[in-house]
Design a protein around this nucleic acid. Structure first.
Length: 477
RNA sequence: GCCCCCAUCGUCUAGCGGCCUAGGAUCUCGCCCUUUCAAGGCGGAGACACGGGUUCGAAUCCCGUUGGGGGUACCA
């Protein structure tokens, strides 16, 4: 660690940033920031068909939205670029050639079909499936004849045939028996590198000191360690494997469980600081008590030794609750902007001044921006269509109350919350009704629902004309 | 099949041999506050997967079982 920490997030541009990747990015970023190190973004797009420019853009946008800025990577570049694997093909080819000439890799002429057949046969015999190494010791003659026959060839890495122990930063040691560590393809027959090769080469070339990634990659670590050693690296990176994020039932997290992409959470009205805080705690904890962490606190306190070992179920409800907390803490002006954007997205051109005035009414009762926006809709609608429950509250027996309310409100001198409240409370007392009995019909008439922001404030914001119009309409006037 | 990882309330977790009558958060239920809904306050219910060891003493250490997840590709 002499030169300082260097770690990275290396997403494949699949068109969105999955929460699992987002969390891995966050932990890497926190780790780098905590140690004053360097956080690198590398795009793993060796699978050309699946990656587009647009997909890369979305990944970067999601990272930025989360506030995870990278020190090296696309757009900012850096001393070990380029940072897209598709721009680094020469490197992989060169590395392969060196491995080939060092005798650490060899050409394999087996076809996918043959491989599949042998694999099935081995499974049937109860043996460990995996490459049997048959092309490893081909004679020069055998090789030549296959070349002459035009057989496609892939390049395989020659594993040393020894047991390997991985020292994991998070979970300690993991032992892998030699028999399960078979020779694997590093360069496909079409000349492109596989993940194992590309990641190993890049981690070495980019001087990564720590590789913190999902547990799904733990079994590939002994292979990469060997590859890295064969590449002549004096000091391989240290590895740490994060527990996977799973769905509510312990199954893999999928779209069926709601949003799984960072972009999706943004669209649903979540705040980045809420997602960051939630994700930080999904697999890591600081102590028994602390739940809320600012970005600075996370940087200061984050520590790999406190990352948990077991899979964590993503809990949308807890995220929502946490989002509510951050919404309440957010600046009013920021919320106003988000609400206006959300309303507009919904086809409502909301007046900014009204929204700004309404923010205090909704900020403490919304859990997402979408929810907040829906609470404000009645302020901008032409007319209201009472929902079922509200309609019940507007039966014939409430008409007199509504009429009286309309006439008294018409006489209010200054259309302010205080005045409105005074008049309506007097009405309530005169009517002999309970507050609930008296005010719910008015709420129903004005907002079309029985659940809304506080009534008197709402009436002020709605304005006298529309308030009276709605009450009268509900009273059948 | 084989290999690897993991195992505390429904969920996220604290716990790293006695401080545990197992703590916090979320969810849920009740009460208070209250014009509705929230927010807030108070209270309740809710977990050490199982079986063996080790030890004066085990949620904590060891072994096994069971369960879950991951891997086993010319995907990443």
């Amino acid at each position: 660690m002499a030169e300082g920490v260097r770690c990275r997030i290396a997403p494949a541009p699949t068109g969105y940033l999955h929460v699992g990747n987002a969390r891995a990015a966050l932990y890497n970023w926190l780790f780098a920031r905590h140690h004053g190190g360097t956080f690198v973004l590398r795009i793993e797009d060796t699978d050309r068909k699946r990656s587009t420019e647009e997909a890369v853009g979305i990944v970067m946008e999601s990272l930025r939205w989360l506030g995870l800025d990278w020190d090296e990577g696309p757009e900012v570049e850096g001393p070990y670029g380029p940072y897209r694997q598709s721009d680094r093909m020469d490197l992989y080819r060169t590395a392969t050639e060196r491995l080939l000439s060092d005798g650490r890799a060899y050409f394999c002429y087996c076809t996918p079909q043959e491989l599949e057949d042998r694999r099935r046969a081995a499974l049937q015999r109860g043996e460990t499936p995996g490459y049997d190494g048959r092309c490893r010791n081909l004679s020069e003659e055998q090789r030549r004849s296959r070349e002459a026959a035009g057989h496609p060839r892939a390049v395989r890495f020659a594993m040393p045939g020894i047991d390997i122990t991985v020292h994991d930063l998070i979970r300690g040691e993991a032992h892998f028996p030699a028999n399960d560590l078979r020779d694997f393809v590093i360069l496909r027959s079409d000349g492109t590198p596989t993940y194992l090769l590309a990641a190993a080469v890049d981690d070495v070339e980019m001087r990564m000191t720590h590789v913190i990634r999902g547990e799904d990659l733990l079994p590939s670590t002994p292979r990469q360690l060997q590859l890295i050693e064969a590449l002549g690296t004096p000091e391989p990176p240290l590895y740490g494997h994060l527990p996977l994020i799973v769905g509510p039932n312990g199954q893999p997290l999928s779209k069926r469980h709601g949003a799984v992409a960072v972009e999706g959470f943004r669209k649903q009205g979540y705040l980045p600081e809420a997602l960051v805080n939630y994700l930080a705690l999904l697999g890591w904890s600081y102590d028994a008590k602390t739940t809320f962490f600012s970005r600075e606190e996370l940087i200061e306190k984050f520590d790999l030794s406190r990352v948990s070992h077991n899979p964590a179920a993503f809990d949308p409800q807890k995220l929502e609750w946490m989002n509510g907390h951050y919404l309440r803490e957010a600046e009013d002006s920021r919320l106003a902007e988000l609400l206006i954007a959300e309303l507009l997205h919904d086809g409502v051109a909301a007046d900014p001044i009204t929204v700004a005035a309404a923010v205090p009414l909704v900020k403490e009762r919304m859990r997402t921006v979408i929810e907040g926006a829906s609470m404000l809709r009645f302020l901008f609608a032409e007319e209201v269509n009472p929902d079922q429950k509200a309609a019940k509250m507007l039966g014939p027996d409430r008409q007199e109350l509504l009429r009286e309310a309309a006439s008294r409100l018409e006489a209010v001198e200054e259309w302010r919350t205080g005045e409105i409240e005074r008049v309506l409370r007097r009405l309530q007392q005169d009517s002999g009704l309970s507050a609930k009995q008296a005010f719910q019909p008015i709420r129903a008439a004005v907002t079309g629902t029985l659940v809304s922001p506080p009534l008197f404030e709402s009436l002020e914001l709605l304005g006298r004309d529309r308030t009276l119009g709605r009450i009268r309409a509900a009273a059948g006037l």
